[in-house]
């Protein structure tokens, strides 16, 4: 694979002494090796290696402050917007080291979309929210095409039927769950290849959460998804693989079923059995 050319063989195959389980994926899309993140003096992510596979949902779990959000923000370089944040190591997407100095973040982020913890629709209409991405990237050439993209995205996000008559209402007028699905629609309107979700349901009620989880499952066929979640049930419901982070280290990674039924690391077991978290 071309990916390997970007990372030395030794680095690709190295062992991570603090990580239990298979970090590689049979169908790798994103390869992370030796990733360290510092916020000023603070060492937030310590030496993480992890692969994320094609058409898979990987859940990142762990107690608050363990670095899981920081880690997925590395994958589309959202950490660039935080002053004093420094990332070392390699993160390779489709054979391109995304922390390479010559790489432009704009196409990267068009390729790797993101949904945030709190729904953050722009103070524009629902239509404009979804149309924003295709517009700035020049993905559509006509108004009709744009309308089509908006409709498809809203449909995929399961929001179309609820908002099709209110497309010109402000996005902020929707309920929390609808806003979050609007944000998902906004992200998929750009037709990304990877979607990162940072606790997308933490601000939502159970019904809205269920809708989003169902949506994630449907989206899996088109996209690679990494989701950070606080809820172990959610991780178990939506993901194929699960990675457990603890104090900035990746402790254990493996098939979701295995992690939840038969964790191999003491910390993972303590966490999923509810000793802390």
């Amino acid at each position: 694979m071309k990916v390997r050319e970007r990372i030395s063989e030794a680095s690709f195959n190295r062992e991570y002494s603090h990580t239990v389980g298979e970090i590689t994926s049979p169908n790798s899309r994103i390869v992370c090796r030796n990733v360290n993140v510092y916020y000023g003096e603070k060492h937030a992510i310590q030496d993480v290696g992890l692969d994320i596979g094609r058409n898979e949902v990987i859940a990142l779990i762990g107690p608050s402050g363990c670095g899981k959000s920081t880690f997925i923000r590395c994958l589309n370089r959202m950490n660039d917007t935080i002053p004093g944040c420094r990332v070392t190591g390699q993160i390779v997407l489709d054979g391109q080291d995304i922390y390479d100095g010559s790489l432009d973040v704009v196409p990267l982020r068009a390729q790797v979309g993101m949904v945030f913890q709190k729904p953050n629709p722009f103070p524009k209409s629902i239509f404009e929210n979804v149309a924003y991405g295709p517009r700035i990237h020049g993905l559509v050439s006509s108004k009709a095409e744009l309308e089509e993209v908006v409709e498809t995205s809203l449909r995929r996000a399961g929001l179309w039927d609820e908002v099709k008559d209110y497309l010109h209402q402000p996005g902020t007028s929707l309920s929390g769950g609808q806003q979050q699905r609007l944000c998902i629609a906004r992200a998929i309107a750009v037709n990304p290849e990877v979607i990162l979700m940072d606790e997308p349901c933490s601000a939502l009620d159970p019904i809205a959460t269920a809708k989003i989880e169902q949506l994630i499952d449907e989206l899996r066929s088109h996209y690679t998804i990494a989701i950070v979640t606080h809820s172990m049930q959610q991780a178990a419901r939506v993901s194929q693989r699960t990675a457990y982070f603890h104090l900035g280290r990746l402790i254990e990674v493996g098939e979701t079923a295995q992690i939840f039924t038969n964790p191999r690391h003491q910390l993972t077991e303590d966490y999923i059995t509810g000793r802390f978290g």
């Binding site: 982020r109 068009a110 390729q111 993101m114 953050n120 924003y132």
Partner: peptide, 15 residues
Amino acid sequence: VPQSLRDGAYALGAT
């Protein structure tokens, strides 16, 4: 203007 709005736009690949 909340940072989350900036994040939202950046995450879409806006310059």
